[in-house]
């Protein structure tokens, strides 16, 4: 199943965060809770953890861009939990 990972609400005051860098590559197997993306909120640089286990199929969020909370940032192939 393709899981569409939406940007979590990690900003303290705003609705947008800056995408800094990918911490995993397309094709990588990722575990639940693994940090996969570095972002910068209004307050701090943070790592975003994957809520699912699976294989990263596509990065939607691009480094050096700003994305809104709730925007799809990655597609992850899961085996279903």
């Amino acid at each position: 199943m393709l899981y569409k990972f939406k940007m979590p609400d990690l900003s303290t005051t705003g609705d947008e965060v800056d995408v800094k860098q990918w911490l995993v590559n397309v094709g990588d197997r990722i575990t639940r809770g693994q940090a996969i993306l570095e972002i910068e909120t209004d307050k701090a640089v943070m790592e975003v953890e994957s809520p699912v286990e699976g294989v990263l199929r596509e990065w939607v969020a691009q480094p050096d861009t700003t994305v809104g909370v709730g925007t799809i940032i990655a597609h992850i192939e899961t085996a279903g939990r």
Partner: peptide, 16 residues
């Protein structure tokens, strides 16, 4: 706590 953490990350559960 772990389960709630992932529900939050998924955006399934509102609030902080």
């Amino acid at each position: 706590e772990e389960g709630v953490k992932f529900l939050f990350l998924e955006g399934t559960m509102p609030g902080t």
